[in-house]
């Protein structure tokens, strides 16, 4: 039973690591809620969270009205981008696949800019138009990549990535056009959205994003072993009996929905979907049963850390979190390249 016990030990270690990460997550989550211009201790913060929302209490209103939805948005968006990133990297067999490199984020950016300038899709209340438009265009970009890939032989993954790069340039050009024709206040609003900011976080956004994540995470569970096999290679997965084209399309749709729900509320938050899977892979290997939740966890922890940094770098000012994630992401990507990990 030596091999079985060695394998069981690896699995036990992975579960322990997930547990430790869960504790780290809780601590960082509370710190993120605690940090801000109104200083609170950790005990006070936890107490207010457990008290529930109350009227006419200043700190309670700050936490339940502003900081908790912001922190929970970090959780949903980080988890969604982390999970979508690992799924995209697996189905495209490319460590550089992410919402950013495939142009889905640019499409969302264009959608937001289009809505800011023209009011599309003309819904009421008006604030809902920007996220809905961003979601529509990011799904549209994903659909275009998926349709193009169907025309390519055997869902050729390199062509799929290249097509994503084309999408990126296309939507970036349209987005610049929107900025060019917008007035000054619209330009400011577009720029603010493109920075990627948690400032407009609200409970409805949290509800939608968390529901999408939970549903897709649960659906993804049944594909975990197949995705693990796909990570070994296309031919190998096929000869193990997996219908790889079908698997790729299903998982691509799932990750496109995750990305759309995530970026439509907070704007362009880069690099989480790229970086989180690499961290997770280092600790979990390729077994997607553990890699996928671990990547989601790392996504959350990275975004919460970026959120904390965005509040403390310049006291009294919240820097858009997208700027922090980009700065951290660039450093990490350079590190990976220099270490020849990608």
């Amino acid at each position: 039973m030596e091999s079985v016990s060695q394998y069981s030990q690896i699995i036990r270690r992975r579960k322990q690591f997930l547990f430790i990460l869960a504790i780290v997550f809780v601590v960082i989550f509370i710190i993120d809620i605690m940090v801000g211009s109104s200083s609170l201790t950790m005990v006070e913060t936890v107490k207010i969270i457990f008290e529930g929302p109350k009227e006419n209490e200043r700190y309670n209103a700050i936490i339940w009205g502003i900081r908790l939805p912001m922190a929970l948005t970090c959780v949903c968006v980080g988890a969604s981008l982390g999970l979508a990133g690992v799924q995209m990297q697996t189905i495209l067999n490319n460590p550089l696949a992410s919402p950013y490199t495939l142009g889905v984020s640019s499409a969302a950016g264009f959608g937001a800019a289009f809505s800011i300038v023209f009011g599309f899709p003309y819904l009421s209340p008006s604030w809902i138009n920007i996220p809905v438009s961003a979601m529509i265009f990011s799904l549209l970009a994903s659909a275009m990549i998926a349709l193009a890939s169907k025309r390519m032989e055997n869902n050729d993954t390199k062509s799929m990535i290249l097509f994503g790069v084309i999408m990126n340039f296309f939507f970036a050009a349209l987005q610049t056009l929107m900025q060019y024709i917008s007035n000054q206040s619209q330009t400011t609003e577009i720029l603010h959205w493109l920075f990627g900011s948690l400032a407009k976080a609200n409970w409805l956004g949290v509800l939608i994003c968390s529901s999408v994540f939970l549903i897709i995470f649960l659906i993804s569970l049944r594909y975990n072993w197949q995705l693990t096999a796909l990570s070994v290679g296309e031919d190998r997965a096929k000869s193990l009996g997996i219908r790889t084209n079908k698997l790729r399309i299903i998982v691509f749709i799932l990750s496109a929905l995750l990305i759309a729900a995530a970026v439509s509320y907070v704007g362009s938050i880069g690099f989480i979907g790229l970086v989180a899977p690499h961290f997770a892979r280092t600790y979990m290997g390729e077994d997607q049963r553990y890699l996928a939740p671990m990547s989601a966890f790392f996504g959350v922890i990275l975004l919460l850390t970026a959120s904390i940094l965005s509040k403390i770098v310049i006291p009294g000012i919240i820097i858009p979190v997208g700027i922090i994630t980009n700065l951290v992401g660039v450093g990490f990507l350079a590190y990976l390249m220099l270490r020849r990990k990608i």
């Binding site: 394998y7 690896i10 693990t228 990570s231 290679g233 290997g285 390729e286 077994d287």
Partner: peptide, 8 residues
């Protein structure tokens, strides 16, 4: 090529 273990 794969980063999976032999057992996996």
């Amino acid at each position: 090529n794969s980063e999976l273990t032999v057992f996996e």
